[in-house]
Amino acid sequence: MKILVVEDEPEMQKLLSQFLQEENYVVEEAHDFLSGMDKIAAYDYDCILLDITLPDGSGLDVLRELKRLGKADSVIIISAKNSIEDKVQGLDLGADDYLTKPFHITELNARIKSVIRRKKADGKSYLIMENVKINIEERLALVDEIPMELNRKEFDILVFFGMNKSRIVSKSAIAENIWGDYIDQSNDFDFIYSQIKNLRKKLREHKAKFDISAVYGMGYKLSLK
């Protein structure tokens, strides 16, 4: 899996590369508009992380060029601008997703995985977590091939953990991912506890080979049994 990061901020670039490498992606970097344009013309990527505000041009023009070249690379716009117009414009130009800075690493991870998954589009790809198989499109969770009944939020939480298997997932990241953008302003995320508790109970009942354990002061993490 090859990912291009177009980002002018060196620190941001560095940490994104580090994280993507941890997730076993091959990472290429472009630090400005021109090198971004060069890279998209020369190579194909599974996913492009695109910053809109670049010192010598707009990320939206990179996106336009990509579409003009008829390439099918998935694009996630990463912008500090949280304006609806920019979001709409980016998505209209053919971006697959739009993420506003600051974001949680786990959220970015989940978004990258979903756009890559969507591109494959065979509908048969399962998200595998030990003995648990999840079909996201059909909203189906199987433990040892036996279906597990989950409500909407429990399912989404499980998927979110599945996409961040080795990572600590913060409460606010879960709240934002499952309950939506607004709720992250609540500053009090303990309310997600009851859904997590129910999900853990169901995983135990179905004898899943992993558990969701609390990381004190941070959030939760998947742990093997």
Partner: peptide
């Protein structure tokens, strides 16, 4: 937002 994003994400890592 950019330095905040860098700070948050570095700490997360």
């Amino acid at each position: 937002q950019t330095p905040l994003a860098i700070g948050i994400n570095k700490l997360e890592l």
